[in-house]
Amino acid sequence: MGDPLADPRAFRRCLGQYATGVTIVTASADGVMVGVTANSFASVSMTPPLVLWSLQNNSTSYDVFTRATHFAINILAADQIELSQRFAKSGPEKFDGVTLSEGAGGAPILDGAAAVLECRREVEHPTGDHLIMVGHVERYRRSETAALVFERGRYAAAVEHPATRFKDDHPQSSTILHRYFIVLLNRAYNRMREAMAAARASEHLDLNESRVLSAVSAYPSRSLDTLQPITFLDRIAAEDAVASLCAKGFLTVGQAAVLTMTPSGSQALDALYEATLAIEGQLLSSIPEDEFAITERTLRAIVGADVFTRQ
């Protein structure tokens, strides 16, 4: 139990437990284009077709959004992390090099989005430190592209929950499903992920903390401003991880906000690396070396073709 006003960071972490999609909301007014990354998007009504999102009162794009007749909700695809990070920052260069088209009311439509909703401004509701903007969807487009997900301050990908798979008491169905490489790959990933979660817990680390600790180890004598893109965490999640690691005695913050790992932090990270090797050794021990080499080449080929490597 906690008081949101007494510990805002803890309250944000609580809200972060709710996984959302990632959108870039765009608009244009008087020849000026704006866009902001937002995960506050939600459906309001089917009849009429209404959606909403929330804009910070201190946003540099506030004036344009409140003057524009329309806005567009660009629901990002799983390969658009770089685009999400770009539009999460302030600056006039957001649209530089971005392929786009003009939507209703001049709102920019971003190429490659998983879905787009072109909305006419319907009504606004000032609430707290945000302006809730409700839009009437005039037209939409969608694709079968997987959407980007955000959870606990980090990017994620939506995968089918293991519990929805056929159980072992359905051997015939299970055999049919296991003909597909992607199904086996997903189940193998889930098994290793669960094992790694237990290993992190034994070192009193969560995933965000382990990412920050690994980044500090790989790139010493740097500040969080430099390391944050490497962690693929948002600013608040990265700051929370640093604060927690400092409280645990794993990190210190020095002059110019330089992060330094303590001996305790090094010990915890080394133990985590050793646990990773042990987990891999245990799960892969039954695979002959020549067969594992083939599997590794197969995975590297898949990763090499992944759109993430082209960003």
Results as ranks from 00 to 15, higher is better:
1 M>L: 08
1 M>Y: 09
3 D>G: 11
4 P>K: 00
5 L>A: 15
10 A>F: 02
12 R>Y: 03
13 R>C: 01
17 Q>T: 10
20 T>V: 06
22 V>Y: 02
26 T>H: 04
31 G>M: 05
32 V>S: 04
33 M>H: 06
35 G>L: 02
39 N>P: 12
42 A>C: 11
43 S>H: 13
43 S>L: 15
47 T>S: 10
53 W>R: 07
56 Q>K: 11
69 T>P: 11
80 Q>S: 09
86 R>F: 02
91 G>T: 01
91 G>C: 01
101 S>F: 01
102 E>S: 13
111 D>W: 09
122 E>R: 09
127 T>H: 14
130 H>I: 00
137 V>T: 06
140 Y>G: 15
146 A>M: 08
147 A>S: 14
150 F>E: 04
153 G>L: 09
156 A>Y: 06
159 V>Q: 15
160 E>H: 06
161 H>P: 05
174 S>L: 15
183 V>P: 09
193 R>E: 14
205 L>A: 00
207 L>Y: 05
214 S>Q: 05
222 R>N: 11
222 R>M: 09
224 L>A: 11
233 L>K: 03
240 D>M: 10
243 A>C: 12
246 C>W: 01
248 K>E: 09
250 F>E: 05
256 A>E: 07
265 G>T: 00
266 S>R: 15
271 A>H: 01
272 L>A: 03
274 E>K: 10
278 A>E: 07
282 Q>Y: 10
284 L>W: 08
286 S>P: 02
286 S>K: 15
289 E>M: 13
290 D>H: 14
296 E>T: 10
297 R>D: 15
297 R>Q: 12
299 L>R: 08
301 A>Q: 10
303 V>Q: 08
